[in-house]
């Protein structure tokens, strides 16, 4: 398996705070990788650095053999990195169908003149896109609500819909930012199945979670962050038995200064 994504000693500072401090991680083709850590450990910042929302001050991000740090977010999507958001960011004024359609945006070959003149190219692409959207909606199990407006659908479906939207861009790597947060047990189990199915299609996945249980069933390899630094990597079992990880999640248990104050 060759390397798909490699984060090489990335550093991101906000004023005096170093949110990401020399993080190294690697996702190989076809792999599901977990990125875990307590709240505020810099997981989402790592994701934002990968997707181009923030430019890292130091270090490299290598995707598919190409350095992508500093590129605009939409260019990175074109390269093949899709993502979902921790707090749902769908277009609320539009329907389920339209939101998934928006994910196809980067693959569209139509320009404004095709649309104004309704060319044959436009009709052909739209027919094909419509089929693709229905396929994706069927895949994530939301085909029956395709005409609903986002405001009318429950939270769990919105989370899954974001994954569908990301899939429409045909990514090679999918970044999921806390996909299980706020889901109940049933929804969470369904989500695990969907993530597994996506992985079976050959799409690599980088999963961010602080719920350990969710990561356990999915990730082949886990990285643990704390205060912006990588403190452990390996299989899930290796990481959870690492004393540094236990300390990060539960504290040291010997003379915690905060506890005394």
């Amino acid at each position: 398996m060759s390397s798909l994504l490699k984060v090489d000693k990335a550093v991101k500072r906000f004023g005096g705070i170093t949110a990401v401090d020399g993080v190294e991680l690697e996702v190989k083709e076809g792999q599901v990788v977990g990125l875990i850590g307590p709240n505020g450990s810099g997981k989402t910042t790592v994701l934002n650095v990968i997707t181009g929302v923030y430019k890292p001050e130091e270090g490299k991000i290598i995707f598919n053999g190409e350095e992508i740090q500093g590129m605009a977010p939409h260019t990175i999507v074109e390269k093949g990195i899709g993502r979902t958001f921790q707090n749902i960011r769908l277009i609320n004024s539009q329907t389920v169908f339209d939101n998934v359609w928006l994910g196809h945006h980067v693959n569209s070959k139509l320009n404004i003149f095709d649309i104004i003149l309704k060319t044959r190219r436009e009709k052909e692409e739209l027919k094909q896109v419509r089929e693709e959207i229905e396929e994706v909606l069927d895949f994530i199990g939301l085909l029956s609500i395709k005409d609903e407006y986002i405001g009318n659908i429950p939270y769990g479906q919105k989370k899954i819909l974001e994954i569908g939207r990301a899939l429409m861009a045909k990514p090679k790597l999918l970044l999921l930012d806390e996909p299980a947060a706020g889901l109940n047990n049933t929804e969470s189990r369904e989500l695990v199945q969907i993530v597994k199915k996506i992985n079976q299609k050959g799409i690599s996945i980088l999963l961010i979670e602080h719920e350990m249980e969710f990561v356990q069933g999915l990730a082949e390899r886990v990285y643990v962050l704390d205060h912006g630094k990588k403190i452990a990597e390996g299989t899930f079992a290796e990481c959870t038995n690492n004393p540094l990880v236990i300390e990060a999640y539960l504290g040291t248990g010997r003379g915690d200064k905060n506890a005394e104050n």
Partner: peptide
């Protein structure tokens, strides 16, 4: 922001 990250060249 979301538009940009989904792939729309804002």
């Amino acid at each position: 922001v979301a538009a940009e990250i989904i792939g729309v060249d804002v």
